[in-house]
Amino acid sequence: TKVFYNGTYVEFNNPEKAKKYAEKVAKKVGGTFTEKNGQFHVE
């Protein structure tokens, strides 16, 4: 499961961990995250 952010991504074996990371990054940058095709995108 990949989490895309700012033109790069971090890959996780565990979708649950990926979601938590996406939430954390989104919170940090004051943005939101969306799930597309089983991957997370932070905006």
Rank of each mutant, 00 (worst) to 15 (best):
K36W: 09
A26G: 03
E23N: 06
K19M: 09
F40Y: 13
Y9A: 08
T32N: 08
Y9P: 03
E11F: 10
E16R: 09
G7S: 06
K20Y: 08
N13H: 11
E35Y: 13
H41A: 05
K36R: 14
V3L: 02
N13Y: 10
G31Y: 04
F4N: 03
Y9R: 03
K2H: 05
E11Y: 12
Y21E: 03
F4H: 07
V25I: 15
E23S: 08
V25Q: 07
K24I: 12
V42N: 01
K24P: 00
Y9I: 11
T32W: 14
F33A: 09
K19V: 06
F33G: 01
V42T: 02
K36Q: 10
G38K: 05
K19D: 02
F40K: 01
H41M: 08
F4R: 02
F12E: 00
V10D: 03
E16Q: 11
V29N: 07
N14A: 07
T8V: 11
Y9W: 13
N13D: 15
F33P: 04
G30S: 07
E43R: 10
K2A: 06
K24F: 15
Y21F: 13
F33I: 15
K2E: 02
Q39N: 15
T32Q: 09
G31C: 07
K2C: 12
A18H: 01
K2G: 09
G30P: 01
V10T: 10
E16F: 09
E43G: 09
T32L: 08
A22N: 00
G31N: 03
K27R: 11
T34H: 13
E35A: 06
K36S: 09
F40E: 01
N6L: 12
T1W: 15
V29R: 05
V3R: 00
Y21I: 03
V3N: 00
V42L: 04
K36G: 05
T34S: 12
Y21D: 01
A26Q: 02
N6K: 12
K17R: 12
F33Q: 03
K24G: 09
V25L: 15
N6F: 09
F40L: 07
T8G: 12
N14V: 06
F40M: 05
N6H: 10
G31P: 01
E16L: 11
N6P: 01
K20C: 08
K20H: 10
P15C: 12
V25H: 05
E16C: 09
Y5R: 03
F40Q: 02
H41F: 15
E23C: 09
G38E: 04
N13W: 10
G38Q: 05
K36T: 09
G30M: 06
V10E: 06
F12M: 03
F40C: 03
A26P: 01
G31F: 04
V42S: 01
H41T: 08
E35V: 12
G31W: 04
K20L: 13
K28P: 02
H41V: 12
A18E: 01
K24M: 15
F12V: 02
Y21M: 03
T8F: 13
H41Y: 15
H41K: 05
E23H: 08
P15R: 15
G30L: 06
T1A: 08
A22E: 01
V25G: 02
V29I: 14
K19F: 08
N37H: 09
K27F: 09
T1E: 02
T34W: 13
K17Y: 11
T32V: 12
G30C: 13
K20M: 12
Y21N: 02
N6I: 05
E16H: 11
Y5V: 08
F12L: 04
V3H: 00
V10C: 13
A18D: 01
F12C: 07
F12G: 00
Y9Q: 06
V42K: 01
V3A: 02
E43N: 12
H41W: 15
A22L: 02
N13K: 13
K36A: 08
N6M: 12
F33R: 03
P15K: 15
G31D: 02
V42H: 03
F12D: 01
N14F: 05
Y5G: 01
Y9T: 08
Y21V: 03
Q39L: 06
N37S: 07
G31V: 05
G7I: 02
T8P: 01
E16T: 10
K27M: 12
Y21G: 01
T8Q: 11
K19Y: 10
K28S: 13
K2Q: 06
Y5A: 04
F12Y: 03
K2S: 05
Y5H: 08
G38M: 04
F4G: 02
K17H: 14
Q39K: 04
K27G: 08
T8W: 14
K36N: 08
F12T: 01
